[in-house]
Write a protein that binds this DNA or RNA. Structure first.
Lengths: 203, 203
DNA sequence: GATCCGTGTGAATCCGGATTCACATTGACT
DNA sequence: AGTCAATGTGAATCCGGATTCACACGGATC
């Protein structure tokens, strides 16, 4: 039975190759470098082919962002849910976010603040909102359990998202300089966040 | 002595008019709406004239950003220096930043995170760094005086800048919805920042 | 084997701005 | 008056991409 219908020569749906190529380009050189021509070339297809699978460049990248951000969010959520206290959940979120951002700084920057199409920006905001919601959830839990002081969970969550993002990507924004000591940076940030939500000082 | 040399018919150096027009456009509709044609029209000159005073559009907007951000920074610095304790200085910075950002949300967003030319982005980063330095200074003071707990002032400053920015403009990012209760938002943010640097709870 | 559909091709085209430039105008200085 | 520098004009031009489209090609269906 040569060449059965289901066992085609690993064509790997072109659509997926396009998404993969776009993802790689963003990881390497950010959104700016991810022009249609580059994506097509990297996928081994012509530029026109891209439009057989996506109505526009923006649509392709919305999908790319959706996939990446979705996974990131899931990782954070799982990290948080594996913990038993709000404090350790907060630590876990920071740790998760930080370690991944520091490993792929370019990607982190692209995801968090690199200029992009309006459609892509909208997608970014959607996920940022989800990040806030996840953190707000943790904060609410901490306040209820008495681990954290009384506070407006949504306001704190917004501030925490900003703090985490800026502390990690702010300093190295687009310029390639990395943090001197990642572990220390993360620890410092965790301490900051704990204090911010009012975890009693360990001293 | 009709028409003395110094009393020209209020020409108001065209250069300044261009800067003013560009500033107004940014305040109203953000960077995206500030195209060369619009700036020129609003200044009452032709597009070509812009290039008599600036080598490029980016150069014009770098100057615009420099002026605005410089003033904002100065206001924050003065607000901080008028205080006698690090805690009140931190409060004053947050209050200053917040009240101004909430009054001109569109401008705040343009200044903090709207996509712009690389040159303009670079200017933005310069001022963000200065913001960090100002706050780091305050944090250092607080740590020394014992008002704040021991911490890495630079790391905390980066996180604080992010927290303040996100808490204020994050939620309303580009979409016109404003904060329900500005005063409450500011108070909540001040409390967050105090806790974050380890000011002993007022309770 | 005729037709159709899904897919691929890539040069030509379109598009939104920024930028240029040949041509005034005006005031200053000789 | 004559020259020059500075400034203004705005239509024409340029430019970096995204997007289109007329033209294949293979496999499936009838």
């Amino acid at each position: 039975m040569p060449d059965s219908p289901t066992a085609r020569a690993v064509p790997v749906h072109t659509r997926d190759r396009l998404v993969a190529a776009a993802t790689e380009l963003i990881m390497q050189d950010g959104y700016a470098a991810a022009c249609v021509a580059a994506v097509a070339e990297r996928s081994g297809v012509a530029t026109g082919t891209l439009y057989r699978h996506f109505p526009s460049k923006a649509a392709l990248f919305v999908e790319v962002f959706r996939r990446i951000c979705g996974r990131e969010l899931e990782v954070m959520r799982e990290a948080a849910e594996a913990q038993t206290t709000a404090t350790s959940a907060l630590d876990a979120i920071v740790e998760s976010f930080a370690s991944r951002a520091l490993q792929r700084p370019r990607l982190a920057w692209a995801l968090l603040s690199e200029p992009a199409d309006p459609l892509v920006d909208a997608e970014r905001l959607t996920y940022r909102r989800k990040d806030r919601e996840l953190i707000a959830e943790v904060v609410r839990g901490g306040v209820e359990s008495g681990e954290f002081v009384e506070q407006d969970a949504d306001a704190s969550a917004a501030a925490l998202v900003g703090a985490i993002g800026d502390a990690l990507i702010g300093p190295l924004s687009s310029t390639g300089q990395s943090h001197a000591d990642p572990a220390r940076t993360v620890a410092e940030l965790q301490a900051f966040c704990r204090r911010a939500v009012g975890v009693p000082s360990p001293a």
